[in-house]
Design a protein around this nucleic acid. Structure first.
Lengths: 177, 177
DNA sequence: CGACTCATGTAACTTGTTACATGATTTG
DNA sequence: CAAATCATGTAACAAGTTACATGAGTCG
């Protein structure tokens, strides 16, 4: 697991609240990381208990206190350590493929509906990702250089959805044969 | 989640022990489902408690008792129900991409090593998958027809590793620029 | 006037991981 | 003679999900 590490990475650039981090996950890491707000708050609490982040509380009238987390030196160090360890290949479990594997137990229509849904979903994602890609490409050289690595993660998102789209076409053709 | 459903799918074709199922996962569903033996035994126990599978115990000298699980009518029914529900898109969390995103905090060499490892890993997978693809294509028409759906899941595995390989090349080129 | 934003949490539960444990038989 | 195969489990822990809760301010 490394929600903790993902949080440390985001906190490295600037202190933030759980709320901020949740938005940054959704906006910038959406195509390779998903996290619920509960998990984020929980892991921040644990990181704080471990001394990897510090927490400054701002009281607010009529709202819950705001907790701003900052990376500590210890957090920096453990992030560095993590960066040098080889990552584990991520195991993934895909219910859709289980369903297709067992497709002989149901109507072909059910499968076609699922795959069509998948295709639509990925078409929408592709449109969004390609928009982000254009934004990147129209940047001036210097900020573009700075965004090079995040852009590579976007490229991964694009290649991934394209692979799903090619596969969807293959499967729909095979199911309709 | 649906390890339970994946187990029901495998049990639909024939009764099996936890041990058998673990092997069948590794052999036939390896490219879209991973499960540890502990999880398999645990979920089988739960399915049994829920009445979705029945369990027949064979005593063996010098070995743990063998437990053969069979799908019950209730299990059949819940499998049918699951097949008709839309699947949830599977959220995936990829530590490698987090690392790349934060790559400015470490040496480019570290990143190149990771991506090279990824490429090698996927090249091996591709070779295995393409072997399975050839096996399928050399089947007689009738068994080939029967294996059509599992073959489509293999195709997914192939398109997936190819997408990883294309991306690896892009990233290595960008990191070495 | 309903939905969204800000801002955080608890509680109960399910799922998954890691480490440990047993022990005979077969294969290289 | 070591490793894999057969065959199952417990225990402790970590991670993730789902549902529930609060409550003002703002936008269309």
């Amino acid at each position: 697991m490394s929600l903790k590490h993902a949080l440390l990475v985001l906190l490295e650039s600037q202190p933030a609240t759980g709320y901020d981090l949740r938005k940054r996950f959704a906006e910038h890491m959406g195509y390779f990381w998903s996290a619920s707000h509960q998990q984020i708050y929980l892991q921040l609490k644990k990181l704080n208990a471990e001394g990897q982040v510090s927490c400054e509380i701002t009281e607010q009238a009529d709202k819950p206190d705001k907790k701003t987390y900052t990376l500590t030196e210890q957090g920096q160090a453990s992030l560095q350590e993590w960066l040098c360890e080889p990552v584990k290949p991520c195991a993934y479990n895909d219910a859709l493929l289980v369903k297709l594997y067992a497709g002989h137990l149901t109507d072909t229509e059910v499968l076609i509906t699922e795959i069509s849904r998948l295709r639509e979903h990925n078409e929408k994602k592709l449109a969004i990702f390609q928009g982000l890609e254009r934004d990147y490409q129209s940047l001036a050289p210097s900020p573009r250089q700075q965004m090079k690595l995040p852009f590579l993660t976007l490229r991964r998102g694009i290649l991934e959805v394209q692979a799903w789209l090619s596969w969807s076409e293959e499967v729909l053709a095979a199911l309709r044969d």
